[in-house]
Write a protein that binds this DNA or RNA. Structure first.
Lengths: 244, 244
DNA sequence: GCAATAGTGTCTATAAGACACTATCTT
DNA sequence: AAGATAGTGTCTTATAGACACTATTGC
């Protein structure tokens, strides 16, 4: 076959070198606020700068696998973590070392313990997204894209449950929406709406042991349902007829 | 500064070679049916197989620029063509030559003339998506992802207008939706709905010179409005409460 | 007791879809 | 003349949001 002959004479090193990295925008909710996982770069380039966790893709390692590895290196196990591809960033010069195309991933995690610094990170921490300032490379742009994707995904998918533990209450789910969308929602209407979407949540027939810290009845417990899309969707409120 | 010192000693060729390609899922409407641009591979590997147009990203070439170049090589100028990133595909072994990560782009184009074969393609053609069979590499998967993205995008963005010429009628716009979604829509309801979305289309105050080929009044002409998102969205009908 | 909260009821405005209808055009 | 099409009117149903209200809990 012609292919075999061709491949035998093919030299991959005859072309200009490029590199593939993965970067992860890992989001979680802490104290009712949206946080992103950041690492402080341990080595050059841009040592000391905050950046998204990430690194070079290894040989024979699939892209989602590389993203999961980078995430576990910082956070430990990633049970119940949602991981999806966000997009790729490959503008020439975005990394001073060489031509680097980074495949960015977006992760939604329930509340996790403080991260440990990975192999080549001086430090790692969950940082409130409202307080992130400068980031290395083009990571600010990647983070912004990830946040917008997250906000949109909550509208038409049940992925808000990925920010919760296995068992959660409707008010807890509402806190997720409020943190990601950055605005308060009407408790009563939200409650009814969530229950009206088939397959969004599943009633466990139990309540929490205690009411909220400031009083009120014990909330009923739910777990994630089997829906992959929300019908009807939970659209963001104050959606002003956005025009260009 | 430490970075400069580090970069001076950095050897990009010390790592395993990988390559970056772009592949384009270019869609258009012909004879009321959705078509995708395919090329017949001129050289190995998989010579003679139909594939998505694409190729290696050149040094100092940005990713969208590479996608636009691949598209113009086959179709000529791409005025009024919408181009967006679809996703990246990098499973080891997807290309027999070496580790290749392909950044896929999705393009919406108005009806264009038959393509010319590009530099390394034996042939190129607009093929009805319903009639595509086998494709090289993992391009069938990429095409499927592109189609689903296109179907979803028509719901909440005005990108259906990217399939039309600068001036179009509501029935022509409806034909786009019907071709992409693969189902007929109610003409009256569709008409009213499109006009009710602020910024979707702009009335040009004229009609076509002739009615439809089978009779009927002359349709009014519109051009794309300035909205970037549709509020309210045009949801696909027969949206059965999809559950996993 | 007081204040906050979980959850439900109700009403209104908007939107989606079914159906009907008129006017206009091609063949 | 016949048949198809552009565009509008109207009615029904589903949904989103505003508001009110009760019951339950923590402090």
């Amino acid at each position: 076959m012609a292919d075999e002959e061709f491949l035998a004479g093919y030299d991959p090193r005859a072309y200009d070198p490029v590199a593939i990295t993965v970067d992860v925008v890992a989001l979680t909710i802490r104290d009712g606020r949206l946080h992103v996982l950041l690492v402080r770069r341990g080595g050059p380039p841009q040592a000391g700068q905050w950046a998204l966790p990430g690194g070079f893709v290894r040989v024979d390692e699939d892209l989602p696998q590389a993203a999961a590895r980078e995430l576990t290196e910082e956070t430990g196990l990633l049970d119940r973590v949602h991981l999806e591809q966000l997009g790729s960033y490959g503008t020439p010069g975005r990394d001073p070392r060489m031509r680097v195309v980074s495949v960015a991933y977006l992760a939604f995690a329930p509340e996790l313990p403080d991260p440990r610094a990975g192999s080549d990170a001086a430090d790692a921490a969950w940082v409130p997204v409202a307080e992130t300032t400068e980031l290395a490379f083009d990571h600010a742009r990647i983070l912004a894209d990830g946040l917008e994707r997250a906000r949109a995904k909550l509208e038409y998918t049940p992925l808000a449950t990925a920010f919760c533990r296995a068992e959660f209450t409707i008010p807890q789910l509402r806190a997720v929406y409020e943190a990601v969308w950055g605005q308060e929602l009407h408790p009563g209407n939200f409650h009814r709406k969530v229950l009206s979407v088939p397959g969004f949540v599943e009633d466990l027939g139990m309540t929490r042991q205690r009411g909220s810290s400031r009083g009120g009845p014990r909330a009923r417990l739910y777990r994630a349902g089997d829906a992959r899309l929300l019908h009807p969707a939970l659209l963001r409120p104050t959606t002003p007829p956005r025009r260009a």
